[in-house]
Write a protein that binds this DNA or RNA. Structure first.
Lengths: 218, 218
DNA sequence: GTCTATAATATGATAGAC
DNA sequence: GTCTATCATATTATAGAC
């Protein structure tokens, strides 16, 4: 398998994967966007290269000019799904006053995660849905990317806990797992009519910090 | 190229979906159990009837004696995945003292859900993973089964709220969605070494009722 | 109830013209 | 960079013997 170069985001192909460009995607980027959408909708094994090609208005032969194999496409789709979310969360947290209290930090991270997750729907939703369908070799490589992001969240919670306001009985590891599951699950039911992303972030932050029971102190 | 490792793991000892019988499953039941496991591990489209047949020690011809099509198999796997969990939760809640306080009710429901979910791993995990991969006609029929269970949870939370101890600012609809996502997400990371099901249920109940922040009243 | 064949189709990937 | 073939396999499902 000849891999010419590690996947470099081209400056020319600014992608519908980033929400800010208005020009329709082309070539490699169009193939990626289309693949992400079809993987999400139909699953990995059930999406053929012919399907992707047809949706792009090209033939399967052309796809092999841009990618070496179907596996190469799905690898890139999976990577983008996690890395873009992680980047946005890191950026949001870094832009905060370092002395911010736990509630502020958590809310910023939760909002940034939800925003990127639901903005990149095709990539992130594909990620959640097809992870269990790709060949084990791809799965193993991708798990590294996932773990790095989980570790980031773990450190974030530990940093918040250092402020001393958390109930020491809480298990931060389980809390992190429950929180990330609650965040990512929104992919399956989120619609703007139900509630805005702001509302989601607010509600989830309050729920995880204060709980369902009333607390007269606040 | 999709090369499949002929997994030689003999799993005849694995518990079938009817947990009470100790004899290894046979015929129709063996096919269902095997299909559920393979669907979960490899995805729906990537699991062929040959794979299922081979793992059962029969041929594809035999499968068509028990089921009319591959879709008929997956329909039943999906149904079992939700219905069994729902049944166990209903039973647990019904066996409680009707005057039980919210914390008791919630804990019982959370524990029952986790217990059934992780006990029936092949069926419930297949359910979560392959839902997005089956033909739309099957998906639509199955969504009815899912919605019924979601409605049950909604009523459960409303019943708890009637006791008047909940913070009225909380959104019960979003809370339910976050809770079910947190519960089902455990399928992807649960291992007994991390924490017992009891521990999971306890931690999740406390987290959703009391939150992460310390509360001096308790 | 299980088997052996086999039909009809779809798939990932390649070669080579333009 | 895209096209038109085409190869070698794998797929669901069926027919009919035992």
């Amino acid at each position: 398998m000849a891999k010419k170069q590690a996947s470099q985001t081209r400056t020319t192909a600014r992608a519908s994967v980033s929400a800010d460009d208005l020009a329709p995607a082309e070539g490699r980027q169009l193939i990626l966007d289309t693949a992400a959408r079809l993987f999400r909708e139909e699953g990995y094994a059930n999406t053929s290269l012919r399907d992707i090609a047809a949706e792009c208005g090209v033939t399967t032969g052309s796809i092999y000019h841009h990618f070496g194999s179907k596996e190469e496409i799905v690898t890139e789709v999976l990577r983008i799904g996690v890395v873009r979310v992680a980047e946005e969360v890191r950026r949001a947290v870094m832009s905060l006053d370092p002395a911010s209290e736990a509630r502020t930090i958590l809310h910023a991270a939760v909002y940034a995660h939800l925003h990127a997750l639901l903005e990149l729907q095709d990539y992130t939703s594909a990620n959640v849905r097809i992870f269990g369908q790709v060949p084990p070799s791809i799965r193993e490589k991708h798990i590294v990317v996932r773990d790095a992001y989980e570790t980031y969240w773990h450190k974030l919670l530990q940093r918040c806990a250092l402020q001393g306001t958390f109930n020491p009985a809480r298990d931060l590891r389980l809390t992190r797992l429950f929180l990330i599951n609650a965040l990512n699950g929104s992919l399956e039911w989120y619609r703007p009519e139900i509630a805005s992303i702001q509302k989601l972030a607010h509600e989830l932050t309050e729920l995880f910090l204060d709980g369902l029971d009333a607390n007269p102190r606040r």
